[in-house]
Nucleic acid binder design. Structure first.
Length: 491
RNA sequence: GGUCUCGUGGCCGAGUGGCUAGGCAGAGGUCUGCAAAACCUCCCACAGCGGUUCGACUCCGCUCGAGACCUCCA
């Protein structure tokens, strides 16, 4: 298929033509959640962003292997070398096995992502299931002379690495500046330099999650899991590595260093980073305590929320902004998305029942063209959505008999909506998940009710017709009288 | 303090050296028993100050303001 997909590469800070390492295959690795709590709105951003990337690459004909990890060990809080393990802490507080915590929140994460219509990755590896691979990689880095062992821990030697390679290319950080900006080494610190980071940590007395290693009992550092698992499943060199912008430094910078130290090559060809979601102009995050979980959004169960928001509204809200822009949350903005999406989906329904005319009075080819142009330009979903809204106007005009479309025009528009709205943007209607049988039954019943109401209206029995409409309205069913009879929809 | 990003109409958000983003909200109109929806029209924005240019919201500089990263965070 003819296309010129351009991707913004965080490493070069430029848009680059997307050329996979070995087409038609494409490998993508995205940093998944650390499962010690429910996913919040911020977690939905990378999930949906890279879901769009996955869906579009698949649409273009690539065979994508999509790896998204579950971090369940090694992610420490407060300070990368001295804090308590996040999972371990949760387990201690709740008096659970760490893996119970992991399973519980992994399941809930999957539920949330399913509701958002985010496709499951091809492989979802857990860090704790790849201890051997991580140890092997640490050994290789040690053998290559880019790490050192102290007291049963292994640290990456950033200075040694920087002599032959370049550290800081992704984040644009200069090692010398880093040194100047860093806090002073604590007296008992084992590291040679503050910039060094842990590849393997010796487990202290109270540490629950621990594995044997050549350096004694311990656990892997946070950064090594992604390097080890991505190379295991995608090879030493793969196409796309994604994640949130906040992971750019140090996490991804360290990944680059680790892979280079182990194999001598850059593992990743295109680094992609989604921007943050803000609330009152500030980043939504765990540390600031200003996050709202996805479940709270779905249920409207949070003091900052005026109402519940459906998963599709959240998805649409996120797709209405470009993934590299910050996106500011507010009830007003979310309500706007909610209504906009409704309008889009209603037009999609209308399109299914449009009657073809002999000749078209409007041209619809440009919608598809604009959608392709938008997505080819670094996945510009808001522009693609704008193009679909252009088509909404056309569809409604045809419905109102102000314009007309012939058979070919309608089927082309249908195909465009099916491709972009449903398949690529993944904005299926809420009702799509309900059983078809139930749906059909309600449809027949409604047809009957509306017929009775139509009779009443013909007899100018407004009392009866309004009663039917009001009763239905109470059942959250909205009736609209159009030129060709009434239609209904669930509110 | 260092590195970087951004500042678009009531709100959210695209984009571009000269031509309409789009959505939501608001105003008027068409339609309609009423209502809702839909459609049409309007609200013609680009932080400020300089500079480059025939022409800048778009390029450059400065000022002001906001944010991210530099410590766990998607």
């Amino acid at each position: 298929m003819q296309h010129q997909l351009v991707v913004y590469n965080s490493l070069s800070r430029k848009k680059e033509l997307f050329k996979p390492f070995s087409p038609p295959f494409a490998g993508m690795y995205v940093c998944g959640p650390t499962v010690y709590g429910d996913a919040h709105l911020g977690h939905a951003r990378p999930a949906i962003t890279f879901d769009l990337v996955l869906r579009y690459l698949q649409h273009l004909g690539y065979k994508v292997r999509y790896v998204r990890n579950i971090t369940d060990v090694g992610h420490l809080e407060n300070d990368s070398d001295h804090g308590e393990d996040k999972i371990g802490k949760k387990a201690r507080i709740e008096q659970l096995e760490p893996m119970e915590v992991v399973q519980f929140f992994t399941d809930r994460y999957h539920q949330d992502m399913d509701l958002l219509n985010v496709k499951r990755p091809s492989i979802e590896p857990r860090a704790s299931g790849h201890i051997i691979e991580q140890i092997e990689m640490v050994k290789t880095i040690l053998e290559n002379g880019f790490a050192y062992v102290v007291n049963g821990s292994v640290y990456f030697d950033v200075h040694q690495y920087h002599k032959s390679r370049s550290y800081g290319r992704l984040s644009g950080r200069i090692l010398e500046d880093l040194i100047a900006g860093n806090r002073v080494l604590e007296a008992q610190d084992e590291k040679r330099h503050a910039e060094d980071f842990a590849l393997w940590k010796k487990a202290g007395e109270g540490h629950i999650m621990r594995w044997p290693s050549p350096w004694g009992e311990g656990f892997p550092g946070w950064h090594i899991e992604c390097s080890a698992m991505s190379s295991k499943y995608l090879g030493e060199v793969f196409d796309i590595h994604g994640g949130g912008m906040d992971l750019l430094f140090p996490h991804h910078e360290c990944e680059i260093a680790q892979s280079n130290a182990a194999t001598g090559k850059d593992a990743v060809r295109y680094w992609m980073h989604n921007n943050m979601i803000t609330i009152n102009g500030q980043k939504m995050g765990k540390s600031l305590g200003n996050f709202i979980t996805l479940r709270e959004f779905f249920e409207g169960n949070h003091p900052s929320l005026d109402q519940p928001y459906s998963p599709m509204s959240i998805r649409f809200f996120i797709l209405q902004a470009h993934y590299r822009s910050t996106l500011d949350f507010s009830n007003e903005a979310l309500q706007a998305s909610d209504k906009g999406l409704k309008r889009l989906l209603e037009a999609y329904e209308t399109l299914q029942n449009l009657q073809p005319a002999e000749k078209s009075t409007v041209e619809t080819q440009h919608v598809e063209k604009k959608c392709y142009e938008a997505l080819n330009d670094d996945f510009n979903s808001p522009l693609a959505i704008a193009a679909l809204f252009d088509a909404v106007k056309t569809i409604n005009s045809v419905k109102d008999k102000k314009e007309s479309l012939d058979k070919a025009g309608i089927s082309h528009l249908k195909a465009t909506f099916d491709t972009f709205l449903i398949d690529i943007l993944g904005l299926k209607g809420e009702s799509a998940s309900e059983s078809k049988k139930f749906h059909d039954l309600v449809g027949s019943l409604m047809q009957m009710v509306l017929e009775l109401r139509q009779n009443a209206r013909q007899n100018k029995d407004w009392q009866t017709s309004d009663k039917i409409r009001n009763e239905l309205s109470r059942l959250k069913i909205e009736v609209k009288d159009g030129k060709d009879g009434a239609t209904w929809s669930l509110q």
